[in-house]
Amino acid sequence: MNIDNFREYCLRKPGTIEEFPFDNETLVFKVMGKMYALSGLKSWEGGEPRINLKCNPEYAQELRGEYPESILPGWHMNKHHWNTIVLNGEISFNQLQGFIDHSYDLIVNSLTKKLKEQLKSLD
C-alpha cells in the first residue's frame, strides 16, 4: 500500500474528511469530526510507513500478540484504544483495509443518534 492507496481508501468511507490538525505532516482522517486514522507523511518517504488506527482493546492486544513486529501500541495515542500498524510487508493490503474498516466502524458506532442520522444522509 502506498500513501495514495491509503488516502483513497479512507476517503471512500462515508462522511470522511482529511485534515492536518496537528501540523503539516500528520494526515488525519475523521468521520463526523472524530478521528479514526492518521499517519505521518514523512514515514512514507522510504522506510516503513506507519498508520495509527483505533481498535477494540481486546482485539488490539490479540493483534499485537499475533504481529509483534507490525502492530504496536499506538504511538502518541491512548495505547489501550489505538494501534500503530508498521507497513513492513507482514500485513497484507486486505488485512490493512480490514483494520481501517474496524477503526471507522468503532467511531461510527460510538456516534450520537443525531450524527448517525446525518452520516446516513450523506450516502
Rank of each mutant, 00 (worst) to 15 (best):
N2K: 13
K30I: 08
P68F: 07
E62I: 06
C55R: 05
P21I: 09
E18H: 11
K79T: 03
L96P: 02
G33C: 11
G98K: 13
F99L: 15
C55N: 06
E48A: 06
I71W: 01
G89F: 03
P21Q: 13
N52G: 10
Q61D: 11
R7E: 15
Y9R: 11
K116F: 01
K30R: 15
G98A: 14
N52K: 08
I51S: 01
Q97I: 11
I107S: 10
G47L: 08
G47Y: 09
S43E: 11
F93P: 11
P21M: 12
V31T: 13
N109K: 15
S43R: 06
S110I: 02
E62G: 00
Q61W: 00
I91S: 06
T16W: 10
G65M: 09
K54W: 04
N56L: 08
E69P: 00
F22R: 06
V86R: 11
I71G: 02
R7F: 13
G33L: 12
L27G: 05
Y36S: 11
D105G: 00
Y67K: 07
T112H: 03
P14Y: 01
L87M: 15
K79M: 03
L87Y: 10
G47K: 12
G74N: 11
R12C: 12
C10A: 15
N88R: 07
L111I: 04
G65K: 14
Q97L: 09
N24M: 00
L87C: 12
F99G: 05
P73D: 09
S39A: 15
E117I: 01
Q118F: 04
I51T: 01
C55T: 06
L41F: 00
G33Q: 12
T16Q: 08
Q97N: 12
I100H: 09
S110R: 11
I100Q: 05
V108R: 11
L111T: 09
L87G: 02
I71P: 09
K42M: 03
Y59K: 12
V31I: 13
W82I: 05
I51C: 09
V86H: 05
L119P: 00
E18G: 08
D23M: 04
E25I: 10
I3K: 13
E19Q: 14
Y59G: 00
F29M: 12
E19C: 14
P73F: 10
T16D: 09
E69I: 03
G33R: 12
G98S: 14
K113R: 15
S70E: 06
K13M: 10
M35S: 12
L119H: 02
P68E: 09
I17T: 15
N5T: 11
D105M: 02
N78H: 08
K30T: 05
D101T: 05
Y36F: 15
L106R: 04
F29G: 06
L63E: 00
R50M: 13
E66D: 02
L11Q: 14
P57M: 03
K30V: 06
I107M: 11
R64G: 05
H81N: 13
Q95W: 01
K54V: 08
F93T: 15
